[in-house]
Amino acid sequence: MPPIRTPRSVKAATELLERYAAIEGDIALIENVRNAAIAEANKSADAGAEPLIAERDLIREKLAPWWKDAAASLTAGNRKSIELGGCMIGTRAGRDSLAINGDEDAIAEKLSKRDWAKPLVRVVTRLDKKAIMKSIDGVYRKQLAALGLSRKAGGEQFFVERAEQGGTVAGARA
């Protein structure tokens, strides 16, 4: 890579920008090749794994009722699982979860009104920044300013990007 210098003329800047656009195009082509290769690798792996996954699931389906009948004799009633045939087989307790019989929001509302239940209800209060930005110059501007809220101007940001070529698929504007 040759040294890149800060341009001192429009001609020099134009040459750098032309090179920049060419690089962007090359990067896009490389990304497309990469994505196509990844998609092909995924397709190949899925094709190879699909019948194995189906067979594995069928074996699991057939083992479940067998384990239910054989577990007590194989574990002498002292365990929930054993190692057999290079696998661990057994049962495990699932996590308990909260059953809610009724409207969850209505129950939360009722709990929030009881002092003893306050730790059981989560209340989240956040600034609605979008709504505040709409109101910042309006009727409540003084009250919002007193609270420490004000409009912060967006700073200028330098950008350079490849321009789409008119008349091409990528350059077509809707």
Results as ranks from 00 to 15, higher is better:
Lys62Cys: 06
Ala145Arg: 09
Leu84Asn: 04
Ala28Val: 03
Gly102Glu: 04
Glu31Gly: 07
Trp116Asn: 09
Gln157Val: 11
Gly155Gln: 13
Ala37Phe: 15
Leu29Ser: 11
Pro2Gly: 09
Ala70Ser: 04
Ser44Trp: 14
Ala153Asp: 12
Asn32Asp: 15
Glu24Cys: 10
Val121Tyr: 00
Ala106Tyr: 05
Leu147Ala: 11
Leu147Gln: 07
Glu24Lys: 08
Pro3Gly: 05
Val123Met: 07
Ala37Gln: 15
Ala64Glu: 07
Gly138Asn: 04
Lys62Tyr: 12
Asp57Leu: 06
Arg126Tyr: 03
Ala22Gln: 11
Ala49Pro: 04
Asp46His: 13
Pro51Phe: 03
Asp26Cys: 12
Ser112Leu: 00
Ala172Phe: 14
Asn78Thr: 08
Arg162Gly: 00
Trp116Glu: 14
Ala36Asp: 15
Lys142Pro: 12
Glu109Trp: 02
Lys43Trp: 15
Glu15Ser: 10
Ile107Pro: 00
Gly90Gln: 00
Asp96Ile: 06
Gly167Trp: 02
Ala145Trp: 14
Arg60Ser: 11
Ile30Ser: 03
Phe159Gln: 05
Val124Thr: 13
Ala22Val: 10
Thr91Ser: 12
Ala54Lys: 13
Val10Ser: 10
Ala13Ser: 07
Arg8Thr: 09
Leu144Met: 07
Arg79Pro: 01
Lys130Asp: 10
Asp46Lys: 15
Lys118Ala: 06
Ser9Trp: 05
Ala72Ile: 11
Ser135Asn: 12
Val121Trp: 00
Ala45His: 14
Glu31Ala: 13
Ala72Phe: 12
Ile82Gly: 01
Leu149Ala: 04
Glu161Gly: 08
Leu144Thr: 03
Asp128Ala: 08
Ile23Met: 05
Glu24His: 05
Ala54Asp: 14
Gly85Pro: 02
Leu17Ile: 10
Ala13Trp: 07
Val10Trp: 11
Glu55Phe: 15
Lys68Leu: 13
Leu120Thr: 01
Ala146Asn: 10
Pro119Glu: 04
Ala170Tyr: 02
Asp103Phe: 00
Arg34Met: 13
Asn78Glu: 04
Lys130Cys: 04
Lys62Phe: 07
Pro65Arg: 04
Ser135Gly: 07
Leu149Pro: 00
Ala45Asp: 13
Asp69Asn: 09
Gly148Asp: 00
Gly167Ser: 02
Tyr20Asp: 08
Trp67Tyr: 02
Met1Lys: 05
Gln165Ser: 10
Ala45Leu: 15
Lys134Ile: 01
Leu74Glu: 01
Arg56Gln: 13
Arg141Tyr: 10
